[in-house]
């Protein structure tokens, strides 16, 4: 299972990186997409940890619903910050 080890380490590193990007990137729209990337990678991690139910929930929620909620709010404050 050396492959799963490598995959886990890569995913975890990228997840932390994109979490930091989600907090500190200057454009709000990019932060939302980076948060979406965290959820995407989390769903692979759930599958490696033998939790397909959780992975499926994360996929169903993270692929569209949570992103669109942020963007519905973001369209209102387009002038506020460089969007």
């Amino acid at each position: 299972m050396i492959y799963f080890w490598v995959l886990t380490i890569v995913i975890c590193a990228v997840m932390l990186g994109s979490a930091i990007m989600a907090l500190y990137h200057k454009s709000l729209a990019v932060t939302v997409i980076a948060a979406g990337l965290v959820s995407l990678l989390a769903s692979i991690l759930y599958l490696i940890l033998a939790a397909p139910d959780v992975a499926m929930t994360e996929a169903a929620i993270g692929s569209g619903l949570s992103t669109v909620m942020f963007f519905y709010v973001l369209r209102r404050m387009r002038g506020g910050e460089n969007g």
């Binding site: 080890w5 997840m15 932390l16 979490a19 907090l23 490696i48 940890l49």
Partner: peptide, 15 residues
């Protein structure tokens, strides 16, 4: 494997 995931989860919580 689960230790790496656990550490990542805790670091994400901190972040």
């Amino acid at each position: 494997m689960e230790y790496v995931a656990l550490a990542t989860g805790l670091l994400l919580v901190l972040t």
